[in-house]
Design a protein around this nucleic acid. Structure first.
Length: 561
RNA sequence: UCUCGGGUCGUCCAAUGGCAGGACAGCGGCCUUUGGAGCCGUUAAUCGUGGUUCGAAUCCACGCCCGAGAGCCA
């Protein structure tokens, strides 16, 4: 996947993390270095929340002339897979960031971590514990009561060293023993109640294979990995705040480089869910077609939907970074999207729900090539020719037999401009004799009103889009709406809140002929309708478009009221 | 219940003891060969009570509300 870069240099907004860095720089901390990292666990696909973190970490490295590492936090072989590793790298690159040669894995440090653990054992700060998981839980205490010391807490250094080595050699079954830090079972912070550093897991790891049967826990691996890589600012989400004392404790006891952990509030968005667990459930239970379903908040889903990485980066800048938990209105994301697409997407005409329009006074068989602007926001994109003839398709919505007030489109006797073509006047309709359904609208055109010509000042209130019937190419168009029908789908009944109308498939839509050449990933504005992109599954003989987002539609509000 | 965080327009973000500002959403208008875009205007907030201060969103105290924490997950 190629990066969609093109940085638009809006002034970088500051935030409390950048202020901390500014302060550190002023004080000469870390010898003026700024080094961050993005540390995903390869157990799922990246989503828009990760994008916030990626933009934060890589963005800081870029702005402070520092570095940002990509590090896979792969300490749990039972959950992690290479499939996820690959997708994560693809997504980070697509977002426009590059880790150069700084691709790391926590598993790269397993040997070093083992040696660090030995050091702690020798210092009398870690011990091998024979308690089972259940027993550890029982002795951990509660929110209000301290825990109890493990009966194995006072083993000799020698015995701990021996046992720990034998754990590594595979002499014990899963769960039989752990290595625990010796801190304080009475601490009000559970993370300090002699936390587990290593567990026995006879499992194959996606990178180290069967070399190890003991694996470090997150707390033991993360800070030390940060330290090994020379990270200066270890930025993570709020739920790790309570882990910070432990993060600091390990580093202090080890007397190694001590990065600063800083926590910020993770992104929540209205009308969607963000937890990996729920996302996985949506995929596995078939509520969506896969991780890259265009309704998913995953990076690959947004990409398939037609989002640009520029829009996502701008979104990350716009929402800022703070410590209070929040839920961002999804309209802000959509606004960033429209903002980018408006500037760059080529305009084309497409009729999604066709209604035949016959121009009575236009010669049958005649075809004219009319000029159409590709993007009024960007003249450098030029113009194209589109064919006009006596039989056209217009949008069903653009004709009303009994128009409401302020309806500026076609209705019996009314005039409207056909975009880039002529002003036409509706002369009547043809109805299906049995159903009474309108199957054709008739009109006449005024040859003096050709688009671009000196039109003697004639103006009409409405302009509608159209496609010449004989020249149209056909496509399936997938209309997506929000995945959930309520703003806040958290809670146990979240699956009941899935929007049953989040996908509508339109067959046999009529597109202007140039679109026959479009390729997967191409983005367009279908005039007056919205932004659309060619789906990854689209074929020349079976075009498939996804609606990325609608245009802002002020008429929709008027019509409703 | 204990510990740690956090409370500013509807939603987010800012103001770092000195006129509470910006974005999105909303509302009104202008403009328009996209009811798009653009432009202009406008509504709207400091959790509460005390205190310190010439002056408090900001500092202090006491409340209140929200979130996180008892994985050998990250």
């Amino acid at each position: 996947m190629k990066a969609e870069s093109e940085n638009n240099n809006t002034a970088v907004r500051t935030n409390f993390i950048r202020e901390i860095i500014d302060e550190d720089l002023k004080n000469g901390k870390n010898a003026g270095r700024v080094h961050t990292r993005f540390p995903p666990e390869p157990n799922g696909y990246l989503h828009i929340g990760h994008a916030k973190s990626i933009c934060l970490n890589f963005g800081i490295a870029r702005d402070y002339k520092g570095f940002c590492n990509l590090r896979f936090d792969d300490t749990n072989p039972t959950k992690e897979e290479v499939e996820y590793v690959d997708s994560i790298m693809e997504d980070v690159r697509w977002l426009g960031f590059d880790w150069d040669d700084r691709l790391y894995y926590a598993s790269d440090y397993f040997e070093q971590l083992y040696e660090f653990a030995v050091k702690l054992i020798k210092k009398g700060k870690a011990f091998v514990c024979d308690l089972t998981a259940d027993q550890i839980r029982e002795t951990r205490g509660t929110l209000t009561e301290p825990g109890k010391d493990s009966p194995y807490r006072d083993r000799s250094v020698q015995e701990n060293l021996d046992l720990f080595e034998r754990m590594r050699k595979g002499e014990f079954p899963n769960g039989a023993r752990t290595l625990r830090a010796k801190i304080d079972m009475a601490s009000p912070n559970f993370n300090m109640r002699d936390p587990v550093m290593y567990r026995i897991l006879h499992a194959e790891h996606h990178r180290t294979g069967n070399k190890w049967c003991i694996y470090p826990t997150y707390d033991w691996a993360h800070g030390q990995s940060d330290s090994i890589e020379g990270i200066t600012h270890s930025i993570c989400t709020l739920e790790f705040e309570i882990h910070r004392p432990l993060y600091d404790w390990f580093l202090e006891e080890l007397e190694i480089h001590h990065p600063q952990q800083i926590e910020f509030a993770r992104l929540n968005l209205t009308y969607t869910v963000m937890s990996k667990r729920k996302l996985l459930q949506l995929v596995e239970e078939g509520h969506v077609s896969g991780w890259d379903d265009p309704r998913m908040p995953t990076i690959c889903g947004l990409r398939r939907r037609g989002y640009t990485s520029t829009a996502i980066r701008n979104f990350a800048d716009r929402i800022g970074v703070a410590k209070r938990e929040y839920t961002q209105d999804v309209t802000v994301l959509e606004d960033c999207l429209r903002d980018d697409l408006n500037k760059h997407a080529r305009r084309v005409m497409a009729v999604l729900r066709p209604l035949k329009l016959v121009v009575e006074n236009y010669p049958e068989g005649k075809t004219e090539e009319l000029d159409a602007v590709n993007n009024p926001e960007d003249p450098s994109l030029g113009s194209r020719k589109i064919p006009f003839s006596n039989v056209l398709y217009i949008e069903q919505d653009d004709f009303r037999e009994n128009p409401p007030k302020k309806y500026f489109r076609l209705s019996p006797g009314a005039e409207v401009r056909l975009r880039y073509a002529y002003i036409v006047k509706c002369t009547g309709v043809v109805k299906d004799k049995k159903t009474g359904e309108i199957i054709e609208v008739r009109c006449t055109y005024d040859p003096e009103t050709k688009s671009g010509s000196s039109q003697s000042g004639r103006k009409v209130k409405g302009t509608i889009h159209w496609v010449s019937a004989a020249h149209a190419v056909h496509a399936d168009v997938y209309l997506y709406d929000r995945l959930f029908s309520t703003e806040d789908p958290s809670g146990d009944n979240w699956k009941d809140l899935i929007n049953p109308k989040s996908l509508e498939i339109l067959k046999h839509c009529k597109l202007e002929p140039g679109l026959a050449m479009s390729k997967p990933g191409d983005r367009f504005q279908f005039e007056r309708l919205g932004y659309f992109c060619v789906d990854t599954d689209s074929k020349a003989e079976a075009l498939k478009f996804n609606r990325t987002v609608t245009l802002r539609d002020t008429w929709a509000k008027v019509d409703k009221s």
